Computed example of a mutant assay.
Amino acid sequence: MLNDLQQRKLAHLFTLLDVDDDGTVDKMDYTASADRLVNAFGFAPGSTESRRVRDRYARLWDEVTLPMDADGDERVELEEFVAGFHRFVTQPEAGYHTHVAPVADAFYDLMDTDGDGRITRTEYLRMAASAFRMSEANAAAAFERLDLDGNGSLSRQELHVANEQFFRSPDEECHGNWLFGPLPARG
């Protein structure tokens, strides 16, 4: 069973993914998010990088999100989304590594524009604004919380730890809770 924090994290992510703000997440939302990310980093729509991000998003949609759709309308409502992420990602031990880590790796490869193996603050802010519609202030706050060693960049490992904490941890103190910016106050 998900605690209040885990439910709030998933509701926050749902809001960020609902590109057209219609109260549901569908394949178009995933495609739009992938395309915004690729465009923000200057890759052409048909490029290898673009295809990789789109393919990972499509796989996440097909294997995780679409099966959440309880009523068969190919649109996932918040309650379905929260229950589905719990079933596919939060609860199973390998859920994060099977379903979310490949998407995170594609993001990482795209964000690391200079190929130095580190994600800078600028690269992270560009990703957060494009893929998840986060404000610069919220993205900056997230970056500061995720940069545990204060060196001004994030390693692939730091991002995987943060991602897994976001999706799986019930702990209020986890730095990964900040992956998508500050959580909205309890409703």
Results as ranks from 00 to 15, higher is better:
residue 138 N to G: 04
residue 58 A to Y: 06
residue 43 F to T: 01
residue 72 G to R: 09
residue 63 E to K: 15
residue 19 V to T: 10
residue 148 L to T: 06
residue 121 R to S: 10
residue 103 V to G: 10
residue 6 Q to Y: 00
residue 89 V to L: 01
residue 99 H to Q: 13
residue 134 M to F: 02
residue 158 E to Q: 15
residue 155 S to M: 08
residue 33 S to F: 11
residue 39 N to T: 11
residue 180 F to D: 02
residue 27 K to I: 04
residue 135 S to E: 06
residue 153 S to W: 02
residue 156 R to W: 03
residue 33 S to E: 03
residue 177 N to S: 15
residue 93 E to A: 15
residue 103 V to S: 11
residue 170 P to T: 03
residue 183 L to F: 14
residue 31 T to M: 06
residue 118 R to D: 15
residue 131 A to L: 04
residue 47 S to F: 08
residue 152 G to S: 02
residue 127 M to F: 11
residue 87 R to E: 13
residue 131 A to R: 11
residue 73 D to G: 00
residue 48 T to P: 00
residue 119 I to D: 14
residue 14 F to S: 01
residue 150 G to P: 01
residue 120 T to I: 07
residue 22 D to V: 00
residue 91 Q to F: 14
residue 158 E to P: 05
residue 3 N to I: 11
residue 54 R to P: 08
residue 27 K to N: 04
residue 134 M to E: 04
residue 20 D to Y: 12
residue 166 F to C: 01
residue 94 A to G: 07
residue 96 Y to A: 12
residue 20 D to T: 13
residue 91 Q to D: 13
residue 147 D to H: 01
residue 19 V to W: 03
residue 126 R to P: 02
residue 65 T to E: 08
residue 29 D to R: 00
residue 90 T to G: 07
residue 153 S to C: 04
residue 127 M to Y: 11
residue 183 L to D: 10
residue 72 G to I: 08
residue 81 F to Q: 04
residue 46 G to I: 04
residue 56 R to D: 08
residue 8 R to S: 01
residue 56 R to S: 07
residue 180 F to I: 07
residue 3 N to R: 01
residue 4 D to W: 00
residue 88 F to T: 13
residue 137 A to N: 05
residue 15 T to N: 09
residue 5 L to K: 04
residue 36 R to E: 02
residue 116 D to V: 07
residue 60 L to E: 08
residue 25 V to D: 02
residue 47 S to P: 08
residue 40 A to N: 08
residue 2 L to C: 08
residue 99 H to F: 15
residue 90 T to V: 11
residue 187 G to K: 11
residue 128 A to C: 04
residue 134 M to G: 05
residue 165 Q to H: 05
residue 12 H to L: 00
residue 99 H to D: 09
residue 159 L to M: 12
residue 129 A to H: 02
residue 105 D to K: 10
residue 44 A to C: 03
residue 51 R to N: 11
residue 177 N to L: 12
residue 110 L to W: 09
residue 149 D to G: 02
residue 160 H to V: 05
residue 5 L to D: 02
residue 9 K to A: 04
residue 115 G to S: 14
residue 107 F to R: 14
residue 14 F to M: 05
residue 6 Q to P: 07
residue 122 T to M: 09
residue 11 A to N: 01
residue 57 Y to E: 10
residue 186 R to A: 15
residue 44 A to I: 05
residue 112 D to C: 13
residue 71 D to Y: 06
residue 48 T to W: 02
residue 113 T to I: 12
residue 90 T to E: 06
residue 151 N to I: 01
residue 7 Q to E: 15
residue 83 A to F: 08
residue 170 P to S: 13
residue 63 E to R: 12
residue 68 M to I: 02
